[in-house]
Design a protein around this nucleic acid. Structure first.
Length: 1086
RNA sequence: GCGCGGGUAGCUCAGCUGGUUAGAGCACCCCGCUGAUAACGGGGAGGUCCCCGGUUCGAGUCCGGGCCCGCGCACCA
């Protein structure tokens, strides 16, 4: 049996490229998805990235987690369909093409030819970086089927999306309504939120307080009653006005309501301009506007709620006449829209302005929502390009109308006070125009009527981290508003809505076949994108139908993937056009597992969830890992301008993709922000990857020398305790890792693996080193077999985490000697816990041994007695009887590890040990709460030795305290052994380890012999000898050193593979070492 | 403004339902060990557990208030 030699310092780049080549040549990924899957299907959805950009570190994070669980489940006997996907529509693509075409933010009013060119370029640019993505995907070891990937711009995908919309439409869940959107006025185009995010600037705007005179004859009864109760007579009131505050006088012609907060207190005041009504909280502020005039006098106060429906005179009533919006006429009919009355709204505050808000619903989202509640008229004082449509300023740009309108207000006696206001306002950075918030017709999916079900379906989902469920995602669902799905753009799934020329009839088309039937001809192979689809018109019932111009929100595209990735299309009768597609869909819905970063809560996570809830009354996924963002070492966002970006590919080459993956899994909890730097990667590499590799290379190095016959190894029960301990620990590891991965706890599993590998390397291998270099005599096959088992098992357990490293280990250790084994580690069964191989007692015992060895080393360190100096005995006091037995059993191990001749267990009462007593708070605190201080004091002053004795016997005893006598159980007291005088001793948690530091002459000689032996070993290394080379030696020593060598000659010779020793001066050809005491020796290869 | 998460050693992070002297890794210093390991072991130094108040025998942990950081949502009349 011969293993391929392994370099102890691996070159991860070439190692990983070798593994990739192996996977390619042997089609391992494909094989893994064809192997038997007794456990059934594990459903995974790939959240589609946009290939338009470059792969970055946050993609590594997401893909590491996306890869982990499918690999795990595959090894657990599941089949996992790992269909790739690409998100190809949307802003990133459009913006890059806009730049290319020099459109500079314009995406409205393109000619048909321009649109054709635009979409052609979009289609081309989508996969600009596809080669980088393909390489990146393979390089990091992400197994996903890119050949069968779904692509959102393909006709088949679009058709499936249409089909979903049609099914929502048929349920009455699609409707057209107004929506307030940010518009760049001159080009009339709708902007997305991130297009205006950077456009905020501080500007001076007008700040005007305007009188809205109320119609006293419409005063609500309750308010009239309240005023009279406070001594205000209605007949004394004349010209009373609400005072509103606005920074946008140009919206006043569009005013339809005045809003007050129902819970705030309002005040009727005498002012220099007659009686006014403002919020009580605003009275002082408004008085101070005009310091030279007398302050406001409050006549009466009342809740805002009392003013509901109070009517007032609009400052620019002519705008209503011009637009034929005679809201007054229908006042008595609550079913027709009305205007110019007081509405109640929680969002109105009294911290700014007057506490009365002027409402022009077409220019504000909240205002529009309020107008729906009150069924108020919509008055469009401007058009969508911000040009005034009414009044004296007709034809002017909205921002330019402020000054004149303010002057008119003053002339009409309606301006209470005017000044300017310094605040931030968004501008479109491409045109420099101020943003216009404007109500446009938009298409909605009525998600809000299903709000309760959205919440109920979410309840079935397991979120990692769990707080997202009730927090970010749950709150978002509870506050759900209708989903606006239309976008005024070109490159997207066209909305499949056709409208008749008179606007009366609307048809949603659910498939290409349906459209062809309506048109009475085939579409051939037409592209379903604009502008071609806009040509598709048809006549029905004598009316011509044309498509609405908008395209679909890209999030709907990605949320449609459960059915669209299979090109599922149902006919109106509910029958699938392709039964295979239906079968695929049913088999893969809902997902068992998805994973993306936290920004997808309102993106993909939501769109999947909303569509699944509305159409299938089911969640779309059962488990989801919601990842935190990747930032730099200091917690700052990575950005090119800061120069703190860690690029994935160079990091893969420098540290290995496995190291990067390992870091992603174990550095922090997945939901936390992930700090990232080369320094942190190096830590991850040293902590796990290198350690595992070093144990592996150690094994291969010696196995190739000893050539053990692993199949002849003794049965586990016959192997030494340390072997059985390691195998039991391994069993425990299997359980921990399996349990953690079953609940999607990647970090818990990873940390357990790391801890095991650490103890494998620094305890098992170190303890057993000499078992691996038996010369001449029998090869210790038990040791080799045990280490082999441990390495192979760890390789399998870690395979989903670090697929390259583990593959390399597996190929050499398993496939190298057993060609009947599965071809790849990734085709193996995942190791499962086997209770019959697990010895919990042994694991516990070894814990005690490890503790004592640690303490012993600490004691030697404190007494400054180096470990190479043998000592006669170590005295140990165990924490309890079980531990004492364990220490006795492993006394040889302890003796060797601590370099002592004997281990002596100390009994209670030994003069070497005194005791200190402490209350065991978790048990005692519950029983005697308030008496703890008294008990603590009594324990300190009581007879420690006697109490320690009862505790050791497990007996209860009575303790006299200042609070009286208490009966304490043995478990209520913690007994610590205190370091005795004159010994090197260390004590912790009930364990005590002490050395007598007295040295006999024999011990001194033995110590010197060890020093010599060590010097020879170092000389061998310095002389460049192989570990298996034999040597001859000439020593010219004096005094103690000479005696030590003579006394320990045979040991030293055999330890250093020295065949011949002469007590003479070294030869000229020898490798010579000069000792501190004046002696010297020389060695040469035998 | 609201919501979610976070604030523990120089750095990256653990600290379960309150409980003994608050831990680990990295980095630093000293000592040791090394016939696999650019490793490893021991010790040292390094902490106002963000701040204030409360509950409790006892608070890093629970409660109230505040500050700071990240993310999200809203608003900016």
């Amino acid at each position: 049996m011969k293993f391929t030699e392994v370099n102890s310092q691996p070159d991860y780049k070439s190692l990983e490229s070798g593994v990739l080549e192996f996977w390619r040549d042997h089609k391992v990924f494909a094989t893994s998805s064809q192997k038997p899957s007794p456990a059934g299907e594990f459903v995974f959805y790939e959240g589609p990235p946009t290939a338009n950009g470059q792969p970055a570190m946050h993609h590594v994070l997401a893909r590491a987690f996306k890869d982990l669980f499918p690999r795990f489940k595959t090894m657990k006997g599941f089949h996992v369909t790992r269909k790739g996907g690409w998100d190809t529509h949307g802003l990133p693509v459009e913006i890059s093409v806009e730049k290319k075409m020099g459109w500079n933010g314009r995406n409205h009013g393109a000619t048909r030819a321009e649109m054709e060119e635009f979409n052609r370029l979009c289609r081309e640019s989508v996969f600009t970086n596809i080669k980088d993505w393909d390489y990146f995907t393979e390089r990091m070891g992400y197994w996903v089927d890119l050949e069968q990937a779904y692509v959102t711009f393909k006709n088949e995908y679009i058709e499936s999306v249409w089909n979903l919309l049609k099914r929502l439409w048929d349920k009455g869940l699609v409707q057209e309504d107004y929506k307030v959107v940010p518009v760049s006025p001159r080009i009339g185009s709708t902007l997305s939120a991130n297009e205006i995010a950077d456009g905020y600037r501080m500007v001076n705007d007008p700040s005007v307080y305007v009188r809205f005179p109320v119609k006293l004859e419409t005063t609500p009864e309750a308010l009239r009653f309240e005023l009279e109760r406070q001594g205000v007579k209605m007949e004394d009131l004349h010209g009373t006005a609400l005072v509103i505050w606005t920074t946008t006088p140009w919206t006043l012609p569009s005013n339809t309501m005045a809003a007050v907060n129902p819970d705030l207190e309002y005040a009727l005041c005498d002012s220099p301009m007659g009686q006014i009504i403002v919020a009580s909280g605003a009275v002082t502020r408004i008085s101070e506007l005009q310091k030279d005039l007398p302050p406001l006098t409050v006549l009466a106060t009342f809740k805002g709620a009392l003013m509901e429906w109070w009517r007032y005179e609009q400052p620019f009533p002519e705008s209503f006449k011009e637009l034929n919006l005679e809201g007054e006429k229908h006042w008595g009919d609550s079913s027709t829209p009305r205007a110019h009355f007081v509405a109640l709204a929680d969002f109105v505050l009294d911290t700014d302005g007057s506490g009365v808000a002027h409402e022009a619903p077409v220019y504000g989202a909240e205002d529009l929502a309020l107008s729906r509640v009150y069924n108020a008229i919509l008055c469009f004082g401007t058009n969508g390009n911000g040009i005034m449509q009414v009044g004296s300023q007709k034809g002017k740009f909205f921002k330019d109308a402020d000054k004149e309108l303010t002057r008119e207000l003053r002339e009409r006696g309606l301006l209470y006070y005017g000044t300017t206001y310094h605040h931030s306002y968004p501008f479109h950075d491409r045109t420099g125009d101020p943003i216009l918030y404007f109500a446009r017709k938009s298409w909605f999916v009525k998600t809000s009527v299903n709000r309760d079900n959205l919440v109920a379906q979410n309840d079935k989902i397991n979120w990692v981290p769990s707080h997202i469920k009730e927090g970010r995602f749950g709150k978002w669902l509870e506050n759900n508003v209708d989903w606006s799905i239309s976008r005024e753009r070109y490159w997207g799934t066209p909305l499949p809505f056709w409208i008749s020329e008179d606007g009366q009839d609307k048809i949603c088309v659910g498939s290409v076949k349906e459209l062809e039937t309506l048109m009475g001809r085939t579409l051939e192979n037409a592209d379903l994108h604009r502008p071609y689809i806009d040509d598709a018109t048809f006549v029905k019932d004598g009316k011509t139908f044309t498509r609405v111009p908008e395209v679909l929100d890209v999030w709907f595209d990605s949320g449609a993937m459960p059915s669209a990735q299979w090109h599922l299309v149902l006919d109106p009768d509910g029958v699938a056009q392709d039964p295979q597609a239906l079968e695929n869909f049913v088999k893969h819905f809902p997902a068992d597992y998805i994973c993306e970063a936290v920004d997808q809560t309102r993106g993909w996570f939501y769109s999947l969830h909303a569509i699944a809830t509305l159409l299938y009354d089911s969640p779309a996924f059962k488990n989801v890992i919601c990842l935190g963002h990747v930032v730099d070492e200091k917690g700052a966002k990575m950005s090119k301008s800061k120069g703190n970006v860690v690029e994935p590919l160079p990091a893969f080459d420098k540290f290995g993709a496995d190291t990067v993956r390992w870091y992603m899994f174990t550095a922090t909890e997945p939901g936390d922000v992930k700090r990232f730097s080369e320094r942190l990667l190096l830590e991850a590499q040293r902590g796990f990857v290198n350690t595992l590799w070093n144990v592996y290379s150690f094994f291969v190095l010696y196995a190739n020398l000893d050539k053990p016959k692993l199949e002849d190894a003794p049965a586990v029960a016959e192997r030494p305790e340390l072997d059985r301990w390691l195998l039991s620990s391994l069993e425990q590891l299997k359980k921990t890792v399996n349990d953690a991965l079953e609940v999607y706890d990647a970090r818990g599993a990873g940390l357990a693996l790391e801890k095991f590998v650490e103890s494998l390397s620094n305890w098992y291998v170190r303890r057993n080193r000499r078992r691996f270099w038996t010369q001449d005599g029998a090869v210790d096959t038990a040791a080799y077999a045990t280490l082999h088992t441990a390495l192979v098992t760890v390789a399998k357990l870690a395979a989903p985490f670090t697929p390259f490293l583990t593959e390399a280990i597996y190929q050499n250790l398993v496939r190298g000697v057993d060609s009947s084994a599965p071809e790849s580690v990734h085709l193996c069964d995942y190791p499962e816990f086997d209770a019959s191989s697990f010895d919990a007692k042994l694991v516990g015992e070894m814990d005690a041994v490890l503790r004592v060895v640690d303490l012993g080393r600490a004691a030697r360190g404190q007494a400054n007695v180096k470990l190479r100096q043998p000592l006669s005995e170590v005295m140990v006091r165990a924490r309890g009887a079980a531990d004492a037995l364990a220490l006795e059993k492993f006394s040889a191990v302890i003796a060797e590890e601590l370099n002592v001749k004997a281990v002596k267990l100390l009994e209670a009462g030994t003069s070497l040990v005194s005791y200190s007593l402490k209350p065991n708070l978790p048990t005692l605190g519950k029983k005697y709460g308030k008496n703890i201080p008294a008990i603590r004091a009594a324990l300190q002053t009581g007879d420690a030795a006697a109490i320690a004795k009862s505790v050791q016997l497990g007996a209860s005893f009575t303790l006299e305290t200042s609070d009286g006598a208490f009966t304490l159980e043995a478990a209520d007291v913690l007994v610590d052994a205190v370091s005795p005088e004159g010994y090197a001793a260390v004590e912790q948690d009930g364990f005590l380890v002490a050395f007598s530091t007295t040295l006999t002459r024999d011990l001194v000689l033995e110590g010197l012999a060890k020093d010599l032996q060590r010097a020879v070993q170092q000389a061998r290394k310095d002389a460049g000898l192989e570990v298996s080379n034999h040597i001859s030696m000439r020593a010219e020593l004096n005094g103690n050193s000479l005696e030590a060598l003579q006394t320990w000659e045979s040991t030293i010779l055999s330890e250093t593979l020295c065949d011949a020793l002469e007590y003479t001066a070294p030869l000229a050809t020898d490798f010579v070492v000069q000792l501190e005491d004046g002696g010297k020796f020389g060695i040469a290869r035998a």
